[in-house]
Write a protein that binds this DNA or RNA. Sequence first.
DNA 1: TATTGTTATACTCTATAACTATA
DNA 2: TATAGTTATAGAGTATAACAATA
Lengths: 143, 143
Amino acid sequence: MATRTDALTLEVVDLVATVVARYHEEYEDAAAQHSLTGAQARVLALLAHEPLPMRRIAMRLKCEPSNVTGIVDRLESRGLVERRPDPDDRRVKLAAATAEGRRTAGHLKSSLNFAREPLAGLSVAERTVLRGLLQRILGIDPT
Amino acid sequence: MATRTDALTLEVVDLVATVVARYHEEYEDAAAQHSLTGAQARVLALLAHEPLPMRRIAMRLKCEPSNVTGIVDRLESRGLVERRPDPDDRRVKLAAATAEGRRTAGHLKSSLNFAREPLAGLSVAERTVLRGLLQRILGIDPT
DNA sequence: TATTGTTATACTCTATAACTATA
DNA sequence: TATAGTTATAGAGTATAACAATA
């Protein structure tokens, strides 16, 4: 075990903080290019993958369900998302991305170039090492 | 150069996104433990390091200067921050952390345990490799 | 009774534009 | 005239509490 918080660890934490800041910047910029807020972009990305009950969206966003109402309202008024009844439970409303919503989500994902540019400088071996270290940090069992 | 967006790169991007999400969660939680919002905590951390003109705070936060007024107002009303005149330019107001503000910032930093817990599982050698890779990604010249 | 989604309310963060006091 | 900070305003995200419909 290392000392309580050695210089190396602090350096790494600082680098992680910088990565976090830059990632956020790029995400917000990419969202803004499609006239979306960050929260709207996150919900749209979620729904482009699969329709979800309002409450599940709130859990994924780690916010209160009442907030999701407004976010989905704004996405719906732009035709990117629609609300559908759940056949199994009439209390539930399923939010689902429309065709245009899925298209926008696709553009958004590809304009998020954090993926390519910075990682392009790393070799396959280096990216593999990085993947392993990040998995360890996150407590993910490498399958 | 790797292919446009190979599976490995996508995996790493996904891991980075998870790190970003977890870091944010922990930061907001740590701030909330001191009844601070994320923005307030960021400004307080900045000012605990050194006093700054309002405009410089806005540049560091990448937001409009008008927003900083409100954030500093709230910190000031809690006695964590104070506004001082700048002797060199009477237009400028320097925001500075009070003694209590610096204390709060210290607690906040130590309650941000993203630093210790996840990185503790990595050896010194692994942390060194991670530091190098993150520096490469961020385009930082290792001194 | 419990749960799902919504509404109502209040607070914070955000950008824009107009204002003031300095420079 | 240009700049620093503020104010005013409006939109969006957030939590809390209360509500209707359904389970």
